[in-house]
Nucleic acid binder design. Structure first.
Lengths: 145, 145
DNA sequence: TATTGTTATACTCTATAACTATA
DNA sequence: TATAGTTATAGAGTATAACAATA
């Protein structure tokens, strides 16, 4: 395995870290619905990526304690963004599924953030944008490793 | 100004947004001191970038109300991470300056996150890493636009 | 007996409103 | 009269502890 802790490699890593954290923070501020907390949004994102899940699974994925997830799921249900159904095999558990409303809201949220980022990137010159486009799939691979 | 809302450009923007947000979240979880809240860390980062500031300036930069900043600054002072001094020209104001302890902590935090990111990036092949290195300065420019 | 989810309760962080000191 | 900062208080979000239902 490669070592990236020296010289130009280390500088590039440092630059990437700083830029990704700053851009990530600014993207997070572009919100489409102020009434949803960050964790509520994150739960919807997880459901969109991974499909239905039990409250326990969601709590583990969001790094939140089970009682907190109970409350979050109840709030999302009250807002019509998720449905709760009985688990087919285990009567202790429940299955949380997102509604069409939630999917539409997530899509709107993605659009808003994409538009904001595209506005920033439009300030780059052709060569810079080409470098970014070439790196986009690599960044995505990195983010999912 | 360029339009990046169609075709391959739009796909690249979407890919960048998703990857940056996900990587940013994961980087944020790499923390060196669990006892500092996200805003406290962010205030230290701002002081490191911009030098000393008054509580009011910090509140505006962190998008937090003045009373919240009063509390945050008091906590940071109690932890020995900032010093409070009287403002030279205006006796209503105060000047917040970070201590050497805070600088050392921030440096340790950067190191930990760089190491984590370098560990991820080490999984990439040579061509992928070259693309990322080429894009790093562009991402930094984007993050500061 | 172990596990899933809930209820009851407390703590942390931030906000708004009202106040003090200085400009 | 306006501004910088603080104090008092309330609300949102999360945690821990104790409990109920099911495996």
């Amino acid at each position: 395995m490669r070592d990236l802790s020296h010289g130009d490699d280390a500088a590039a890593v440092n630059s990437l870290r700083s830029a990704v954290m700053r851009l990530g923070r600014r993207l997070k501020h572009q919100r489409v619905d102020e009434s949803l907390s960050p964790t509520e949004m994150s739960v919807l994102g997880t459901l969109a990526r991974c499909g239905s899940a039990t409250p326990g699974e969601l709590a583990r994925k969001e790094h939140v304690q089970p009682p907190s997830m109970t409350r979050i799921v109840a709030l999302l249900e009250a807002k019509g963004l998720v449905r709760l159904e009985p688990h087919p095999d285990d009567r202790r558990q429940k299955v949380v599924t997102q509604t069409e409303t939630a999917e539409a809201m997530l899509e709107q949220s993605r659009r808003k953030r994409n538009a904001w980022l595209a506005g920033l990137a439009a300030e780059l010159d052709d060569e810079e944008w080409a470098k970014l486009r070439a790196a986009a799939p690599v960044l995505e691979k990195l983010a999912h490793l």
